[in-house]
Design a protein around this nucleic acid. Structure first.
Lengths: 122, 122
DNA sequence: CTGTATCCCCAACGATACTG
DNA sequence: CAGTATCGTTGGGGATACAG
């Protein structure tokens, strides 16, 4: 599977104990995770729509990220029985929806400082 | 050095263009980054203090994370000329300080859902 | 005390081909 | 359309030893 062995894994678990913050970071820390959540919140709740949005993503990765987000209860899959092909819809859970405004804060924060590296301390 | 070559790097840059959110995630996405920022905000602004807090961290990693955070203008190093040994102090920049409340939001969010996996959508 | 150099490991990222 | 299996690549995390 994955870990349970290396120090890497042990440290990860250690951080989870220190503060829930770190588990949150682990959730959104993936390369595409936060963007996927954001995209879904904007209505791109289909596999192929996400694939279009994230033009360079491979199906493998998208599928994997989606599965991980599902594991963390950020979103759930919903089958749409009416459609002829598969028809799967991704829906944010409460947890996922509450994450969105935080991501927006993060986005604003990054935007505010992306240009001028304001270095003012002490 | 690092990348500039692989698709991995290209995709990272692509995400940076899509939304600043992703660069923010890249900043705090490191294993210890957010915890370090948090610790410094609480006054653990010395190398050895951070090393104590993050008991399992190796000097290598701590140094590396610190350097990256400095690169992202989250914190700056300050030499303390009065002390006999090296004496380096880490101080959060404005950017870093504004990140702290966002991290707290993230922490609260994670805490709220860490126990009961509330899956309520649609 | 605060770092850096070097090397290893492994997990995430990614490409391709294939299935229901 | 949605998803998985497989395999290769990349680079971050980690240990240790060493330096200012």
């Amino acid at each position: 599977m994955r870990k349970e062995n290396s120090t890497n894994a042990v440290n990860e678990q250690f951080l989870f104990q220190v503060c829930a913050l770190n588990s949150a970071v682990a959730v959104i820390g993936g390369r595409w995770k936060s963007q996927i959540v954001y995209s879904i919140s904007e209505g791109n709740n289909r596999f192929h729509l996400l694939k279009q949005e994230l033009s360079n993503i491979s199906e493998q990765v998208l599928s994997r990220q989606l599965k991980e987000l599902e594991t963390h209860a950020i979103l759930i899959k919903k089958e749409i029985p009416d459609t002829v092909p598969s028809g799967i819809e991704y829906v944010l859970t409460n947890k996922g929806q509450e994450l969105v405004p935080i991501l927006k804060h993060l986005c604003d924060w990054a935007k505010a400082y992306e240009a001028g590296k304001i270095i003012t301390a002490g």
